[in-house]
């Protein structure tokens, strides 16, 4: 009797990675995402130009060796501003996404697991879905900008405001998905087994339910980054986001629109960055969804 050679045991994440690698769009997306992240994080160390330095003699310059992407109407270096703007845009995207995922997961878990809370929490979710979000975001940002700016300082104040505003208006999809998955999981045997040995609700949620709903949460986190970056840029583009001396990609685009006839390239770069990062996040989310789905994996 010969022993059949078994494949060495592999972790779940190795399998997921293998599947993820076969998704061409997701791989390209990940490379682009990491490249932009590296540019934005490492950029200030390599390219040591102050993005807020005003040099009025060198305004409206085109591309050159001294100014790789030219300068704006006040002579500020566009590449440095693009890097600084990317830092803000990406950190807003990540923080707002974290907040919305936290809220969504929490509400989804509670609604799915505790039957008494299901009705009220889902009505709340429906109410939030019926709110006109963009108008409300605009109202929140414009009216609460001043008090928060005086309390936390102009930059932190706006940052907190925009992150919170985006976070509390984008958790609903995650909550719905998580609730649906929890409802299905609750009927499974392993949950029954865990309950039969007297596992308390808190550990039930943290040890048995939460790890099993991680896949949809990760997918909606990836898509959430894209959504948050788009929303922040849209707010900045409407002139209701960050102040002008605090560049983000949306703000740079907004500022450049006034000079569109003479210097169209100034519109192009920030817009391209927003589009690329959102596109890559969406592709990663797509690939992740396929890779985390055990029915597709291994085929």
């Amino acid at each position: 009797m010969t022993e059949t050679p078994l494949r060495p045991p592999r972790s779940q994440w190795a399998e997921v990675w293998d599947q993820f690698r076969t998704h061409r769009g997701a791989m390209v997306g990940m490379v682009v995402f990491l490249a932009i992240a590296a540019l934005v994080i490492l950029g200030p160390w390599v390219y040591r130009v102050d993005p807020t330095f005003i040099n009025i003699r060198a305004r409206n310059q085109g591309m050159s060796w001294t100014y790789p992407l030219g300068t704006d109407q006040l002579g500020r270096d566009m590449l440095a501003r693009l890097i600084a703007g990317g830092r803000v845009s990406i950190s807003v995207g990540l923080t707002a996404m974290a907040l919305s995922i936290l809220l969504g997961t929490f509400i989804g878990l509670l609604a799915g697991y505790f039957r008494r809370l299901d009705g009220p929490l889902m009505r709340l979710t429906d109410l939030f879905l019926a709110l006109p979000l963009l108008p409300l975001l605009l109202v929140m940002v414009l009216f609460f900008r001043e008090p928060l700016a005086t309390r936390f300082g102009p930059e932190t104040g706006i940052f907190v405001l925009i992150v919170v505003a985006i976070g509390v208006t984008s958790w609903m999809q995650t909550a719905r998905i998580v609730r649906g998955d929890v409802l299905a999981l609750k009927e499974r045997e392993f949950v029954l087994a865990a309950r039969s040995i007297g596992t308390p609700d808190r550990r039930m949620l943290s040890r048995h339910i939460l790890p099993n709903v991680m896949s949809p949460i990760m997918v909606s986190a990836t898509l959430g980054i894209a959504n948050a970056i788009i929303t922040e840029s849209a707010l900045s583009f409407l002139g209701l986001g960050f102040p002008p001396d605090f560049p983000t990609w949306g703000r740079l685009l907004f500022d450049a629109v006034d000079y569109i006839r003479d210097y169209p390239e100034r519109v192009f770069w920030p817009g391209l960055m927003i589009s690329l990062i959102v596109l890559s996040a969406n592709f990663i989310g797509d690939g992740l969804r396929d890779a985390l789905d055990p029915r597709i994996r291994g085929r």
């Binding site: 769009g25 894209a226 788009i230 840029s233 849209a234 583009f237 949306g250 685009l253 629109v257 569109i260 169209p264 519109v267 192009f268 817009g271 927003i274 589009s275 959102v278 596109l279 969406n282 592709f283 797509d286």
Partner: peptide, 17 residues
């Protein structure tokens, strides 16, 4: 994917240019 990801304020401005 592109239509969904590229924000309308960028496509609009690009078309204007």
């Amino acid at each position: 994917m592109i239509g969904f990801s590229v924000p309308t304020f960028f496509t609009g401005v690009l078309l204007i240019v």
